[in-house]
C-alpha cells in the first residue's frame, strides 16, 4: 500500500511541480497566468480530440491482431510492404507526435521491425497528409513540396541509421520497454 502511494507521488511529481509553477505565475503575473491556463486548456482539448480513440485502437489492435500477422507485414522480413505500411500509418495521422509513441509501443510489442516503427514515428512527426492543403495555403506549394520530398528521404535515413547505430542490447531494451508499457 505504502509502496503504491510512493509510486503515485513519483509519477505525478512533474505534474505537481508544474501546477506549483503555474500557480506562482498566476499570483505574480495574473495576465500571463491566465494565458498559460487558456493555452493549457486548448492543449487538453487537442489531446482529447485524438488520444482517447488512439488508445482504444491500440487496445483493439493489441487484442485482435496476432503477433504472426504483425511480424508478416511489419516484421524483419516484411521488406517494402513494412516500409510502405509504416509511411502510410504515420503520414495518415495528423495528431501530435506524442500520440505516435504509444502506437509505436504496441507495434514493437507485436514484433514489428525497429526501422519500420521509426518510419511510423518519423512520418507521424513530419508528414501530415491531412494538413497538406493547410500547408499549401499558409506556406505556398514550393515550400510544401520541398518539405514533403525532404521528409520522405529524412524519415528513411533517420530510421535506418537508428537501426544501425542501436546495438542488439539497445534493441532488446527497447522491446523490453514496449512489453512493459503494454502489459
Amino acid at each position: 500500500m505504502k509502496k503504491k502511494r510512493i509510486e503515485l507521488v513519483k509519477r505525478y511529481r512533474f505534474f505537481g511541480i508544474m501546477i506549483a509553477v503555474t500557480l506562482i505565475i498566476l499570483a505574480v503575473k495574473p495576465a500571463m497566468g491566465v494565458q498559460v491556463y487558456s493555452l493549457a486548456i486548448s492543449s487538453v482539448l487537442e489531446m482529447l480530440g485524438v488520444l482517447p480513440p488512439i488508445f482504444v485502437l491500440i487496445g483493439l489492435l493489441d487484442v485482435w491482431v496476432k503477433k504472426e500477422t504483425m511480424v508478416k507485414y511489419m516484421g524483419k522480413d516484411s521488406g517494402i510492404v513494412g516500409v510502405l505500411l509504416g509511411f502510410f500509418m504515420g503520414a495518415a495521422a495528423a495528431g501530435p507526435l506524442y500520440g505516435a509513441f504509444p502506437v509505436a509501443g504496441v507495434f514493437l510489442n507485436k514484433g514489428s521491425r525497429l526501422s519500420n516503427v521509426f518510419i511510423i514515428v518519423g512520418a507521424w512527426a513530419s508528414m501530415k497528409i491531412p494538413l497538406l492543403l493547410f500547408e499549401v495555403a499558409a506556406m505556398g506549394w514550393q515550400f510544401t513540396l520541398i518539405r514533403l520530398v525532404m521528409d520522405i528521404m529524412g524519415v528513411l535515413v533517420i530510421a535506418y541509421s537508428m537501426e544501425r547505430i542501436l546495438t542488439a542490447e539497445d534493441e532488446r531494451q527497447i522491446y523490453g520497454l514496449a512489453r512493459k508499457m503494454n502489459q
Binding site: 509519477r11 505525478y12 512533474f14 505534474f15 511541480i17 508544474m18 501546477i19 509553477v21 503555474t22 494565458q35 498559460v36 491556463y37 487558456s38 493555452l39 493549457a40 492543449s43 487538453v44 489531446m47 488520444l51 482517447p52 488508445f55 491500440i58 487496445g59 506524442y98 509513441f101 504509444p102 509501443g105 504496441v106 508499457m181 503494454n182
Partner: peptide, 17 residues
C-alpha cells in the same frame, strides 16, 4: 496504456502553456 502516461502528459501540457 493511457493512464500509464497521463501524469506526464498533464505536466507537459502545463509546461507548453
Amino acid at each position: 496504456a493511457f493512464e500509464n502516461i497521463l501524469p506526464q502528459f498533464l505536466g507537459i501540457i502545463l509546461l507548453i502553456g
